[in-house]
Simulated scan of single mutants.
Amino acid sequence: MGHGGDVIAELTTDHREVEDLFEQLANAAPGSERRKHVADALTIERVRHSVAEEEHLYPAVRDHLDGGEALADKEISDHAGVEKLLKDLEQHESSDPDFDRLVAKLKTEVTAHVQDEENNLFPRLRDSVHPYVLESLGDKVREAKKTAPTRPHPAAPSTPPANKLLAPGLGLVDRARDYVTGRGR
């Protein structure tokens, strides 16, 4: 979290970290405590990333790209599906047979979303948005990730202004729960 660079570099680095976490999940022993720990880390990173995109990237997509409304709506819809899967995964122990099914489905959906962003959205942003704006968005995304929730909240709003108002409070509650339970360490 917080890598530096413009918004595209920041989010692309997040994508590589999530890919690494999926690899760690694949290499962890089935049913192991390590597998649950990695799934929690994946959830934390994915939720922070999604919240930051919804707060800052997608409003910029709406403002700067032709067809940006539809594109942002599609990306937010993708996030909603992933968030529901993360919520389901959170409810299962790594020894539960549904755990592996949920991880496989999650990986499929996240991989498709990442490929779409990196092959479609990011090149369009790079071509259409001034580098200064991309740098500023990178800073905003990094700041948003610091206060973002760490647990999935599928019923929470995903568009401004409500998401910008609620996310820091949800993030505070999530980080307190994580501290008490040891999750994410």
Rank of each mutant, 00 (worst) to 15 (best):
A29S: 15
P59R: 01
R151I: 07
L89A: 04
I8G: 06
T147L: 10
E19C: 03
E83C: 10
P152I: 08
P149W: 08
E23W: 07
S158K: 15
R48I: 01
H92E: 14
G182S: 06
V173M: 09
H130E: 13
V141L: 14
L172S: 13
D66Q: 14
S158D: 12
A148N: 06
K84R: 15
K146T: 14
L134D: 01
G31Y: 11
R183Y: 04
R183L: 08
A148V: 04
V18Q: 05
T159Q: 08
E83S: 13
R35Y: 09
K87E: 11
I44N: 00
D73Y: 03
R101P: 02
R151C: 05
A155I: 08
P30I: 08
K36R: 15
G171T: 06
K84W: 13
H153F: 11
Y58K: 02
K105W: 01
L165W: 06
R16F: 09
E117H: 10
K107P: 00
S77C: 11
R142H: 06
V82Y: 04
P149I: 00
L125S: 05
G2I: 10
L166D: 00
N120Q: 13
Q115F: 11
T147Y: 07
V82G: 03
R101L: 05
L86C: 07
D6S: 03
P154Q: 09
N163R: 12
I8M: 03
R177Q: 12
R48Y: 01
R46P: 01
F22W: 03
D73Q: 14
K164Y: 00
L89Y: 07
L57E: 02
E23M: 09
G182I: 10
E69W: 08
H49I: 02
P131T: 02
Y132V: 12
T181P: 03
A9K: 07
T12S: 15
S136L: 12
I8Y: 08
P123F: 10
L65V: 05
Q24Y: 10
P161S: 02
E69D: 14
H56Q: 03
A29K: 13
P152W: 09
L106W: 02
E69G: 15
V61W: 01
G67S: 02
T159R: 15
S158F: 07
N120I: 12
R34F: 04
D40N: 08
R124V: 06
L125R: 08
G68K: 01
L21D: 00
H113V: 01
N27C: 07
E75S: 15
E93P: 06
A80L: 12
D14S: 07
H3G: 05
V82L: 11
D100R: 09
P154F: 06
A52F: 06
N27M: 10
L121M: 14
H56A: 00
V18M: 08
V133H: 14
A29W: 04
D6C: 04
T159E: 14
Q24I: 03
H113G: 05
V82Q: 12
A26C: 10
